[in-house]
């Protein structure tokens, strides 16, 4: 599904990631850990084609990322849901329209009263907030809205970058439960986090693999 083979990535002259090899298979669950600035976000960006490796090979759905056109990348992003730490939204649109944005840009007509959308908003506990604008939402609500937007296209992969970074423990658990549910539905999930407590909590619910980035290298199945 997503394969990185001897991938390196450099910003300018400094190499951030080196000799990264990993395969994210369908239905797998991964935690990506490592100190701040180790390259977790860069790793995720390599996984959804926002960055191209400076060396090595990144394959997204069996296609070399270097051979992808801009339209190919757009199409692949419809199969990969991304939850960013800063949860970027279109601030002038109600949150329901923001959640439906992946459908909109794919040319699928969406109405805010659409059954699936309402169901999804209920699932993330935001049904009563459908008409609210993003700046009116709390941190937890924004994270859940970002998750709802990431999954509305029923993607094969969900990449979440520090999704619980701004949340309290209870809200973190709620978000984790949603991600575990998605994994049980067959989605591949990668959560970048340095919240060890969250990883331990998840291990009781799901068979997760830990990927650790430190000193430019990735260790698969690392001890916590």
């Amino acid at each position: 599904m997503i394969e990185l083979e001897q991938v390196a990535y450099s910003y300018g002259e400094g190499e951030l990631l080196s000799d990264i090899s990993v395969s994210l298979t369908p239905g797998s669950f991964h935690f990506l850990t490592g100190p701040s600035g180790a390259g977790k976000t860069t790793f995720l960006k390599l996984c959804y084609g926002e960055l191209v490796p400076t060396s090595g090979q990144a394959r997204l759905f069996d296609r070399d990322v270097r051979s992808l056109t801009r339209d190919d990348i757009a199409d692949i992003r419809r199969r990969i849901g991304v939850v960013h730490q800063d949860c970027q939204f279109l601030d002038h649109l109600p949150i329901a329209d923001n959640i439906a944005l992946p459908l909109t840009v794919a040319g699928k007509s969406v109405h805010s009263q659409d059954g699936n959308l309402s169901e999804l908003m209920s699932w993330v506990g935001l049904r009563s907030r459908a008409a609210a604008l993003p700046p009116e939402l709390s941190g937890g609500e924004r994270q859940r809205a970002a998750l709802a937007r990431a999954v509305i296209m029923s993607p094969d992969v969900i990449l979440a970058d520090e999704p619980t970074g701004n949340l309290d423990w209870e809200m973190s658990q709620r978000l984790l439960t949603l991600l575990v549910e998605l994994n049980r539905m067959g989605k591949t999930v990668v959560i970048a986090t340095h919240d060890i407590g969250l990883i331990r909590a998840a291990k009781s619910q799901v068979q997760a693999r830990v990927l650790r980035i430190a000193n430019r290298h990735l260790t698969v199945g690392a001890d916590l």
């Binding site: 801009r70 339209d71 757009a74 199409d75 992003r77 419809r78 991304v82 960013h84 970027q88 939204f89 279109l90 944005l101 992946p102 840009v105 794919a106 040319g107 937007r149 296209m153």
Partner: peptide, 13 residues
């Protein structure tokens, strides 16, 4: 534009 690209909008859109 960045958000639209992230959620899969093609350039033409």
């Amino acid at each position: 534009i960045s958000v639209m690209r992230l959620v899969g909008a093609r350039d033409s859109y």
